[in-house]
Design a protein around this nucleic acid. Sequence first.
DNA 1: AAACTCTACAACCGCCATTAT
DNA 2: TATAATGGCGGTTGTAGAGTT
Length: 289
Amino acid sequence: MGRRPCCVEEGLNRGSWSAIEDMILTSYINLHGEGKWRELPKRAGLKRCGKSCRLRWLNYLRPDIKRGNISKDEEDLIIKLHRLLGNRWSLIAGRLPGRTDNEIKNYWNTKLSKKIQGQTPKIRINGSVEKKGASESSISSETPPVIRTKASRCTRVFLPRKEGNEITKKNGESSRDCSRPSSSFQQVDDDSLDMLVGFDMNELLFMSDDLNSNCLQICSDGIRGSSNLVTGEDGWNISSWYLDDPFSTDTDVMLQGGSGNEAILENCSIDTLQPDEAFELKMLASFLS
DNA sequence: AAACTCTACAACCGCCATTAT
DNA sequence: TATAATGGCGGTTGTAGAGTT
């Protein structure tokens, strides 16, 4: 009994992804969408476990990922949010368009944690200097407490949206993590990094990543010209998709990324908050304003 | 030039929550 | 209600490349 361990199949590739694998995965997801990660590698003809595919897509291949150096504004925001939320990287990443939780986590672990440690005096616990990570989780008298809501994961929300942004979750529609930038996430300018300023409670809780009906813009450059390399179990293959795709005459393939008015934060519910958590969130709001 | 150390980051692992049956 | 399957998250590891000795 119990869970079937992931990635137990022998013969699966591990380690770094090749360009071909990236191309196969990207192409498959462009056509079939995200989800069904366990089936995906079989269908796409990848010798990877589903979990690995998901990670690769979310952290590296998604078209809305912003690559490059983290700006000073972003860095400040990460520090602020980390002070408030702790190591809840997905939540932090949700406030930084185009950045992934993994990227922020790495950035924190390699740069910011040291930077922060350099600023704050080491805290002694039981007479000894606290080791690695202590400064992150320890609550000094000056830092606001890390907010930890009861539900560590946000599920189901019944939140009235402003001005026609109705919740339109449908049966069978994959739920979207409230913290993760979605493919239909509207890209914002760096100037918007001060977006946390001036939120009221609801805005703070449900900082609504605007879900316009942006289409997912997929660059198909890497696919163009590829030969019929891979065929999945269901007969899908890159070149057949590419050739059959009505959009393929353009440089970019536009896929519909969302219905437009879905709430990215559809999974959050204020009902799940405990009374004292509401108070903590007020503190959060005042801190950020 | 070789050996060693450090840094950055992609990838993996294990656990947990949610969903499906 | 119980159990299995799936998806998601945070912690950790592996490793390539840069820098230093």
